[in-house]
Amino acid sequence: MSEPVISTAPQGAPPSDVSDPVLSLVAHADDNLILAERLGEWISRAPELEEDIAIGNIALDHLGVARALYTHAGQLEGMGRGEDDFAMRRPERGFLNVLLVEQPNGDFAHTMVRGLFFDAYQVELWADLSGSGDATLSGIAGRALKEARYHLLHTSSWVIRLGDGTDESHRRAQRAVDVMWRYTAEMFEGAASGYRDIWEKVIGDVLDEARLQIPDDPYQRSGGRRGFHSEHLGPLLAEMQWMQRSHPGLTW
């Protein structure tokens, strides 16, 4: 694969230090929360009833991981912030998720390809963090790893079915790969760079079996981990945070 050409944050913008343990937890939580929001949009809209149930379960998994990570981050931070403080009261520029997860669902192929790329990364991440010296984190990672393996089975199976299905599904799957590819390099910035090789192998095998091509395009986007998002995050947060922002300080 060609060397990525990264389109990133404005010049002079300070990076957020996701090597900081609290921010690192928040970044992974944000990944999972934003993806959970996206997957939730499929509920009552999936191509078949069984798939509606499966996607809903996957969304609940991601939401559960996000909540556990926010809670742990809040405890480590020691400023009394809870899961809803992180989810509902930070502005767009405070979110540290990768750009991949905030991309719109598009058609079913887009969603499955986005999921494939993210799930393969999550499996490496949680396998690594299962060995963390932070006991709470390693516990969360252990559970998240089991779930991520199941998610990867689900999305990779679908990408293969769509890539090697009908002409139309192949066309849509290839388009999805072409569109989502530019958001993949970002997942391997910083400490995560060690996961890249295995991820490439896993993805390469799946796309091969799916008869799909990896784009020969060095263009990559970045900035999410520094709070510089695509135009898609804003509306998502506006909807998600609406109740808390319009009725501040109440319990539900």
Partner: peptide, 15 residues
């Protein structure tokens, strides 16, 4: 689901 006021209520509703 997208507008549930807390993450807890969101999880309950999704489930």
């Amino acid at each position: 689901i997208s507008r549930a006021p807390t993450l807890h209520r969101k999880a309950i509703l999704m489930a």
